[in-house]
Design a protein around this nucleic acid. Structure first.
Length: 865
DNA sequence: CGGATCGAC
DNA sequence: CTATGTCGATCCG
C-alpha cells in the first residue's frame, strides 16, 4: 500500500516495539505523539507470545550483524583497496550502461481500501478508520494514522491507540472493481502496464509521450464529472477554476493536508475552459491527466512518480503522497541529487532487516551506500552488493517485463490453537482441497509440496517434499502433506503439536519452456498416434473397419482437436527432466504436419493389404494378407519368448538406462492398472503398434511408445501392452549413453519410419514372470501381478533406480549447461534428481515413498526417463 | 534440494 | 480474547 508498514525505527537502536510505532507523527490536535504511541503499543504487547517471538527474531538479526561485524574486523586495508578498484571498475561499466531514455511512471492509490470505504460510506469521512479485522489491519486513513494506526497492525492494538477507530471489514470484490476501473485508464497510456496488487502499477509512457506530441488538443482535453454526487458541486460554476487551484477534489476528504502538488500541478498545467481541462504533452502533464481521470472516474486520489526507471519511479511516488506527484528529470545529476539524502529504507527491496544491518555499518542514506561500496562488496553476497550498487547509482529496470509464469501456489490459515492430531489432519486436508481447486483452475501441477506450521509461540516451520510426478488433486497433495504433518507431530510426541497456523504450498511447476516442449511432444505423439487411439475407442469393431473409419475421421479436424485437447489435459504432468532429455526426438516428429500424417495413414492401409511385414518381435518376415494372422503371430512371439527374454535382459543389464526406465514404467503402470481396475475385466485389447523394422530409429519408436501410452490412459491394459512396451523400451534405450542423447538433436539424422504395421491381441490366462525377482507369478489377474512387481521394486531395486536417475538427470544437466558455458566446479546443477538428496533421509526412503504413492496416471512422463 | 528469512502488497 | 495471506527471491547448509 502506501508504505504504512515502513515504520522504521531509524532513530532507535534496538527497539522491537518502536518498530511498531511510527516516526512521522504530525502531532495534530487529535493525534498522539510518538512517545505515547509507543507506550501504548508496548503495554498491549509486552509479555505476549508474539512479543517474545519478536524479541527472539530480533536477537537473530543482532547475531547476523555481529557476525558481519566480525567479518568486517578481519578485512585489511589491502583487501579493501583491491575491492575498491574492482568495484569502481564495475561502476564505470554501470555508468556507461545508464539509460535515461525511458519514462517510467509509478501510480499508487492513496490509502486505497480505506479511501474506497470512505467513498462508499460518507459517514466514515472525517472519522479515523481502518480496513481489516480485530486481528489484522490492511490499511488506515490519514486520520487514523495520526494515532499511530497503521497497516499490518492488529486491530485490537489500533483500538487502544484510537478508541474511536472504526474498523471496516475487507471487501476485496469492491476493491477489485475499482482497481479495474483504474486499470482501464492506465491501459490507454501503456497497454503493457504492470499492476502490482490492486492499488499500484508501473507504466512505461515513453511511447505514449512520442505519440502525444502529435495529438490535437481535444485529445488531451478532459471533462469534469458533473454527475459526481460527492466532492464536486455540479452547480458550482467556478468549479473548474477551483479545481485548477486545487480547491476542489471529487474525492472524499481523506487528508487534512490534502495539498501541495495538485494545486501547482493544475495551476501550471491544465488550461481550464469551461468544465474541461486540457493537459500538455510533457510527462508531468500526462501523469496529471492520469490522476485527474482516475479521480473523476473513481473519486479516489492517486500519487505518482515519474523517473527513468522503476526503482526511482516508485520512490518518487512516495515523495508527495497523498495526492501528489514527483518527477526526476532524466539526467544523471538529477538522479544522484534525489538519492543523496534518501534513507535506504525508502528503497524498494530494502526492508527492516537490511536497514538495520546497513545501519550497523553506518549506512543510512543512499549516498552513504555508495561510499561504502567496497566494504559492502566484501561483506555481502554478489547479488546483494551489486543490488546496493545499483541502488546507490540510481539504476533500475527501464522497461516493464511482464512477470513470468507463477512459481508456486499456496494457501494458509490462522486459527485459535489446534492441538489434536485429528483436527490437524482434517484441517490439512481442507487446505489441500482448497489448494487443489485453485491449482486445477489454472491447470497447474507441481512436484514440491510444502507444509507450513506456526506454533502457538509464533515460531514458523516449513517442511517440503518433492515427488517425482506432479501433483494437483486434493488426494495427491494431501498424500504428501499428511506425511509431512505426521513427521512433525511425531517429532514433538508425546506432546501435542500446538499450532496457530497451517499452510500448504505446491511449487515446482513446469516452466514456460518446458511447457512448450511438452505441448509439442504431445501434439506430435497425438498426431502419430491418433489412428491408434481412435481405434482403441471402438474396440468392438474389426480392424479394417477402423482404418476406414479412421481415414474418414482424419479429415474431421474437430474430432482430433477434441481428442488432442482432452489428452493434453490428461498429460500435463510430464516432468521437466524427462521432457528435456527426450524432447529432441519429438521435435523432429512434430515437424510433420497434419496432412502428411494423414497420408501416412493411407500408406498404412495400402501396405496392410498388399505388403509383407516384418514382425517387430522376431524380425522375421511375415507374409500375411490378413491382419489377424499377423497379429496372432506377433502375439505368439510376445507370449512365447519376449516377456521372459526381456526380463532377462533387464535383470542382467541393470546398469543400463533401460532398467530404471523399465522399473519406473512398471511403477507407474501398476498405478495405472489399479486405477483402471474395473476396466481390467473388459478383456480383449485391440491395440495397435506401428513398428519400424528396418532402422533403429528412436524417434519413430518413441512416438509409438507415446501413442501406446496415450491410449492406455483410457483403455484397459493387458499383458500385450506390457510386453510390447518392454520390447519397445529395449529398442528405445539400447546402448544409449547420455552423450548420445545430447548429440542426437540435429534434424538430419532422422529417417522416416516405414509403414509396417502389426497388431497385437491379448490373451487371458498366462504365466507372468516378475521382471524384478524373476520368479514366476501365477496369476490370471494383471493387477495382482503388478502389485507383486511393485513390491519387488520397492524392496530391492530402489537404490539402483535412484543411482540411475542421478545419472540420467546429470546428463540432461550437462546438456543444458553446455549452452551457457558449463557449470563451474562448485556449482550444483539445478536439475538434481528429486528424491535423491534429502536431508537426513536416505535416497531409498524417499523414492520408495514415492513409488508407493504412485497411484498416478502419469504414465507418459515415465517414458521420458 | 530444503529450510529459513526477507521483502512487498 | 485478538499479531494476515500470498508470492518471489535469496542465502546457507
Amino acid at each position: 500500500m502506501d508504505n504504512m508498514q515502513k515504520v522504521a525505527n531509524s532513530s532507535c537502536n534496538d527497539g522491537v516495539l518502536l518498530r511498531m510505532g511510527l516516526n512521522d507523527n504530525k502531532a495534530g490536535m487529535q493525534g498522539l505523539d510518538k512517545e505515547k504511541i509507543n507506550k501504548i503499543i508496548m503495554e498491549a504487547t509486552k509479555g505476549s507470545r508474539f512479543y517474545e517471538n519478536e524479541l527472539k527474531k530480533d536477537q537473530q538479526v543482532n547475531q547476523r550483524i555481529e557476525k558481519m561485524m566480525q567479518l568486517k574486523e578481519k578485512i585489511t586495508t589491502q583487501q579493501l583497496l583491491k575491492a575498491q578498484l574492482q568495484v569502481d571498475k564495475l561502476v564505470i561499466e554501470l555508468e556507461q550502461s545508464r539509460n535515461l531514455s525511458s519514462t517510467i511512471v509509478h501510480i499508487d492509490m492513496d490509502a486505497f481500501y480505506a479511501a474506497v470505504e470512505m467513498r462508499d460510506n460518507p459517514e466514515l469521512k472525517e472519522k479515523p478508520i481502518a480496513v481489516g479485522s480485530m486481528s489484522m489491519l490492511s490499511t488506515s486513513n490519514y486520520h487514523a494514522r495520526r494515532f499511530g494506526v497503521r497497516a499490518a497492525m492488529p486491530g485490537f492494538i489500533a483500538k487502544r491507540l484510537c478508541p474511536h477507530l472504526t474498523i471496516v471489514p475487507l471487501n476485496f470484490e469492491k476493491y477489485g472493481k475499482v482497481s479495474k476501473e483504474v486499470r482501464e485508464i492506465l491501459a490507454e497510456y501503456d497497454p503493457n502496464f504492470m499492476p502490482m496488487g490492486l492499488d499500484e502499477a508501473y507504466l512505461n509512457i515513453t511511447e505514449h509521450l512520442e505519440e502525444r506530441l502529435n495529438w490535437p488538443e481535444d485529445r488531451r482535453k478532459f471533462f469534469f464529472n458533473t454527475e459526481s454526487t460527492t466532492g464536486i458541486d455540479k452547480n458550482d460554476t467556478n468549479m473548474c477554476a477551483k479545481f485548477n487551484k486545487g480547491e476542489v477534489s471529487s474525492s472524499p476528504v481523506l487528508f487534512e493536508d490534502n495539498t501541495s502538488l495538485m494545486d501547482d500541478d493544475l495551476k501550471q498545467g491544465g488550461l481550464s475552459v469551461e468544465n474541461s481541462v486540457v493537459f500538455g504533452t510533457s510527462a508531468e502533464e500526462v501523469v496529471k491527466e492520469i490522476r485527474f481521470r482516475i479521480e473523476q472516474k473513481t473519486q479516489l486520489t492517486a500519487s505518482a512518480g515519474i523517473a527513468p526507471n522503476t526503482m526511482l519511479a516508485k520512490m518518487c511516488s512516495d515523495r508527495n503522497k497523498p495526492n501528489g506527484q514527483y518527477r526526476i528529470s532524466p539526467e544523471r545529476q538529477a538522479v544522484l541529487d534525489f538519492l543523496k539524502d534518501l534513507p535506504i529504507r525508502k528503497v524498494p527491496g530494502i526492508g527492516k532487516v537490511t536497514e538495520k544491518m546497513l545501519k550497523a555499518l553506518g549506512i543510512v542514506t543512499c549516498s552513504e551506500l555508495y561510499q561504502q561500496r567496497a566494504l559492502l562488496s566484501l561483506l555481502f553476497s554478489e547479488i546483494s552488493w551489486r543490488n546496493f550498487l545499483d541502488i546507490s547509482l540510481g539504476l533500475g529496470s527501464t522497461h516493464l517485463e511482464k512477470d513470468g509464469e507463477r512459481k508456486s501456489m499456496s494457501t494458509e490459515r490462522t486459527f485459535s490453537e489446534i492441538n489434536t492430531a485429528e483436527d490437524q489432519y482434517s484441517l490439512c486436508r481442507e487446505l489441500c482441497r482448497d489448494l487443489a481447486q485453485e491449482l486445477q483452475k489454472e491447470g497447474l501441477k507441481g512436484k514440491t509440496v510444502t507444509l507450513k506450521l506456526k506454533n502457538v509461540n509464533f515460531e514458523v516451520k516449513t517442511r517440503a517434499s518433492t515427488v517425482l510426478s506432479s501433483v494437483s488433486t486434493e488426494e495427491e497433495v494431501f498424500a504428501v502433506a499428511k506425511d509431512l504433518l505426521a513427521t512433525e507431530i511425531d517429532s514433538v510426541a508425546p506432546h501435542p503439536l500446538r499450532i496457530r497456523l497451517m499452510g500448504v504450498r505446491v511449487s515446482g511447476f513446469l516452466t514456460e519452456e518446458e511447457k512448450k516442449y511438452q505441448q509439442k511432444s504431445i501434439t506430435s505423439f497425438l498426431k502419430s498416434g491418433k489412428e491408434i487411439s481412435f481405434l482403441r475407442h471402438q474396440p468392438q469393431k474389426s480392424n479394417q473397419e477402423y482404418f476406414t473409419k479412421n481415414s474418414e475421421a482424419s479429415h474431421r479436424q474437430s474430432f482430433f482437436d477434441q481428442k488432442r485437447a482432452a489428452r493434453q489435459l490428461d498429460s500435463e504432468n510430464l516432468s521437466p527432466n524427462e521432457t528435456r532429455g527426450k524432447q529432441p526426438f519429438h521435435d523432429r516428429k512434430s515437424s510433420a504436419n497434419f496432412v502428411e500424417e494423414t497420408e501416412e495413414v493411407t500408406d498404412l492401409q495400402n501396405s496392410i493389404v498388399c505388403k509383407i511385414f516384418t514382425c517387430p518381435v522376431c524380425f522375421e518376415e511375415q507374409s500375411s494378407n490378413n491382419l489377424e494372422g499377423l497379429n496372432r503371430h506377433i502375439d505368439e512371439c510376445l507370449n512365447g519368448m519376449l516377456v521372459k527374454d526381456t526380463v532377462e535382459i533387464f535383470k542382467n543389464d541393470s546398469s543400463r538406462e533401460s532398467t530404471p526406465n523399465f522399473l519406473q514404467f512398471k511403477n507407474e503402470y501398476v498405478g495405472e492398472c489399479q486405477k483402471n481396475k474395473t476396466d481390467q475385466l473388459a478383456g480383449l485389447d485391440q491395440s495397435a503398434s506401428v513398428s519400424d523394422s528396418s532402422t533403429n530409429n528412436s524417434t519413430e519408436k518413441f512416438g509409438q511408445i507415446m501413442s501406446e501410452k496415450s491410449s492406455r490412459e483410457r483403455q484397459p491394459s493387458n499383458l500385450s501392452d506390457i510386453a510390447r512396451n518392454v520390447c519397445i523400451e529395449q529398442c528405445l534405450f539400447p546402448r544409449r549413453t547420455s552423450q548420445d542423447n545430447e548429440d542426437h538433436f540435429d534434424e538430419t539424422e532422422h529417417t522416416e519410419g516405414t509403414s509396417s504395421s502389426c497388431f497385437f491381441e491379448a490373451k487371458e490366462d498366462r504365466v507372468l514372470v516378475c521382471p524384478v525377482c524373476n520368479s514366476e507369478q501365477k496369476t490370471t489377474n494383471l493387477v495382482s501381478f503388478n502389485r507383486h512387481v511393485d513390491i519387488c521394486l520397492n524392496k530391492g531395486l530402489i537404490q539402483e533406480l535412484t543411482e540411475k536417475n542421478k545419472f540420467l538427470t546429470k546428463s540432461y544437466s550437462t546438456e543444458n549447461s553446455r549452452k551457457v558455458g558449463g557449470l563451474s566446479k562448485g556449482q550444483q546443477c539445478t536439475n538434481v534428481p528429486q528424491g535423491t538428496k534429502r536431508c537426513g533421509q536416505t535416497a531409498s526412503q524417499s523414492v520408495s515413498k514415492k513409488a508407493k504413492s504412485t497411484n498416478s496416471k502419469h504414465t507418459i512422463e515415465m517414458f521420458f526417463k
